[in-house]
Design a protein around this nucleic acid. Structure first.
Lengths: 212, 212
DNA sequence: TGTACATCAGTGAACGCGCGTTCACTGATGTAC
DNA sequence: TGTACATCAGTGAACGCGCGTTCACTGATGTAC
């Protein structure tokens, strides 16, 4: 017979003065967690984020202008992590083909290891992202831009043949095809993961080295 | 100063006795239209469907058990149309490679011509489909099943080399990769559509004919 | 040919819910004097 | 060292909204006699 409300899981202790930014980080973490679990920005509510953090809903507005601002910052964090992880996988690699092979494997591995992140970044409706985000710039400044530069240099030096943009988009589509299909249609009897991953990467590179 | 409610666009005239099924078809059409426009089952409301058709919300329940039942039947219609269109594109083709090339082109063409249908069928969360639907069976009984049979026969007769399932999934992932990426990330400077489509199909077939 | 009646194809009002967001406020904490 | 005060980090209550679904009902229509 206590008056405590069981729906309010645990109240977060008030931050010390000057430590307001801590709540911002907690909100971002909780929102990302919910976005991953729900898979859709519409299904993430300000109220649920607040409860997960242990504060009341209006507290969210101390750190984010509105819901779309919050979702945007979550997505931005995810882009940063994606680019960071992929770039780390090819650190120090110079040979273009080795670079492409490594990044192809890393791309697929990342997507399959983080299916919900991947879904949000590469399989969701464009409208889920706030309108002011320039997606082209985000992609060109990220790992895809690196890949395009690597392929372009390789073509200029004669290591690869063909149109650099066509080759790069094509490799991207190949690895994306595998990742996104395995994420979207997992119910189907896929061949062993390693076999299909290796096959996909090898085929993507084959198309870059052979004229077809 | 009339009492007519402007929010109720146009009231559908009551069907004649025995013609109740007409409303069912109208509801399905309106729901599909809304699903296409919103791109997400959660964003389609019973009330919006009812208003589009020109009836009151409870009328929907005369023909569908609940919202998920309605969405399921819309998706089922879409699967049927997809399979029908693709099968029509390879009617009468016997040669496996010609069959694969045609179906590959038809697949990409269909996806790019019906991006929102494609998104719903192949890019959405599994949970958006009612739980009782066996997606594996839907896919195996459809065009993918046909493709698997064609490839299997071709391998048995020595026209293709490799594991049939691996080859078929691989071709699917290749064409799906292009379609889904162009749908999900249209903001990026894609090469000319025909070039990238041809390249993708040729590469997918190359991987089936060359051992890699 | 006329009429009572069962049935069909819906309607109108309401339910309880969760949502984003706003607004006036509170109470702890650091700081100036 | 003590105290008034500004500021910071939130809270509590409420707003209006759209949602899925239910329930009792209505009125036109075809049919049996």
């Amino acid at each position: 017979m206590t008056t405590s409300d069981p729906s309010l899981a645990k109240r977060r202790p008030r931050a010390r003065r000057g430590q307001g930014e801590l709540l911002r980080q907690d909100i971002l973490r909780a929102a990302e967690d919910l976005l991953i679990r729900k898979g859709d920005a519409d299904a993430v509510s300000i109220r649920a984020v607040a409860e997960a953090v242990g504060v009341t809903p209006p507290s969210i507005y101390l750190h984010f202008a509105d819901k779309s601002d919050l979702i945007f910052h979550v997505c931005q964090q995810q882009w940063e992590r994606f680019d960071h992880d992929l770039r780390a996988s090819v650190a120090g690699i110079d040979d273009p083909l080795a670079w492409l092979e490594r990044i192809g494997h890393a791309y697929i591995r990342w997507g399959l290891a983080n299916p919900e992140h991947y879904r949000i970044l590469f399989m969701s409706k464009p409208t889920q992202v706030p309108a002011h985000v320039d997606k082209e710039q985000v992609i060109m400044a990220g790992t895809f831009g690196d890949a395009l530069a690597v392929v372009t240099r390789a073509v200029e030096r004669g290591h690869l043949r063909g149109d650099p943009a066509l080759l790069t988009f094509s490799v991207w589509a190949a690895v994306h095809g595998l990742v996104s299909l395995m994420i979207a249609i997992p119910e189907v009897p896929w061949p062993p993961r390693d076999a299909v991953v290796d096959f996909t990467v090898r085929r993507a590179l084959l198309s870059a080295t052979h004229s077809v």
